[in-house]
Write a protein that binds this DNA or RNA. Structure first.
Lengths: 211, 211
DNA sequence: TGTACATCAGTGAACGCGCGTTCACTGATGTAC
DNA sequence: TGTACATCAGTGAACGCGCGTTCACTGATGTAC
């Protein structure tokens, strides 16, 4: 049952908290969201059904921890995408593609992230932390690509629009209806590029702000 | 328990199928998605736990029927919004606002609709029925507003973009982070208008955005 | 250094619960003759 | 028109299941003296 033979496993796990989060993500990806139960996660981690209570108050907190780790992963993926861009313009495109790619590669996790956020009516980081967090990264990148930092309302509008669009695209891109369009565009990535071009974020005057 | 006193209710319900769908939607809105169980729906309809089996093969089919009715309602809302517009341009805006409004006013139903669709990897109508259905309505309206009907790839791109954007906006608009921005815009509806304007669908004839 | 003891991190049995579904049934309805 | 009978649409008891959570416990670890 456990991941390691029982005789090698010490009584004290060492880092059960993270092991439980990892087990939860594993179940999420292989069995889907309904498999992520407290008992199921404990089972997957090779531990008794009550062990998780030493690390999480209840099931909800375990789910939140899994979601939180998802946001951290997403943030890292966005940072990597932005860092690899040759220009601010390219950074915006890369960010969008990275966002949708993350959502598609980790679909059940992505959904859990938003389910947890919805329960609190709050995204995990934007708003509070204005510069860090995934949302803040998008805003920064859009400003670097030419959004007028003096017009804060417009910056917020354009950031919100980009975020909503990426989210909608991420949730839709799995539907079969879009396969024909993807083929017309010549593949998944060109399709995403073409879609983001509809948003027109990158069609402004070519203002370059090297940092 | 039942909606009518037991002594007034005949043994044969008459239209239990629709009564169950209505009961399901009622539970969905008042108790949330986890309350929508087969037994719970039967209870809410004032009927024994096994009665639904005479109308639905299993729980999944009941959920699908609830979702299907949701799509029909959405379609009607979009049609009404389009019909009330003075110009094609206005129709596009109204359609977007109506979509998001529907999603916000029927949030749990809206989510169920997409959950059911995701299980099949298919939206319920677009693709197959090119002109009818909610998706087809959006496409028609965009063409009427100036999209070049000869460029079918561009029509599909713009329709997909509009749909994804509206969906993303619908899912995001409930988060607290956007309240400040809504206030800046002067309310919910102006906010939605400003957001849709970011998409640029209504700012002149669709230009060739290839660079 | 050794030891008593508090604390931490597990176990395993047990609980009550509501679920989806099956089964055999019964009451109501429609129809052929 | 009455009646036998098939069919339809409900009931209610029962099933096995897995869940979240509680409880009292035990083994392992850290620390004060």
């Amino acid at each position: 049952m456990g991941r390691a033979p029982a005789e090698e496993r010490p009584y004290h796990h060492g880092d059960l908290r993270h092991a439980l989060i990892a087990a939860g993500r594993r179940l999420l990806e292989t069995q889907g969201p309904i498999a992520v139960t407290l008992r199921g996660v404990a089972r997957e981690a090779g531990v008794s059904p009550t062990a998780p209570y030493h690390h999480f108050q209840d099931k909800q907190q375990l789910l939140e921890a899994i979601a939180q780790e998802g946001w951290t992963k997403l943030e890292a993926a966005l940072e990597a995408a932005r860092a690899g861009a040759g220009s601010p313009r390219e950074a915006v495109n890369n960010l969008g593609v990275a966002y949708v790619t993350f959502a598609r590669d980790n679909a059940p996790l992505y959904r859990l992230m938003y389910d947890a956020a919805r329960d609190r009516a709050d995204l995990p980081d934007p708003g509070q932390r204005r510069t860090s967090g995934a949302y803040g990264k998008v805003r920064e990148t859009l400003v670097a690509a030419g959004a007028d930092p003096g017009d804060s309302k417009q910056v917020e509008l354009i950031t919100a629009a980009a975020w909503c669009f990426a989210h909608g695209l991420a949730e839709m891109a799995g539907f079969r209806q879009f396969e024909h369009l993807k083929a017309l565009c010549g593949g998944e990535t060109p399709f995403l590029g073409a879609m983001f071009r509809q948003l027109g974020l990158m069609d402004g005057p070519p203002v370059d702000r090297e940092r």
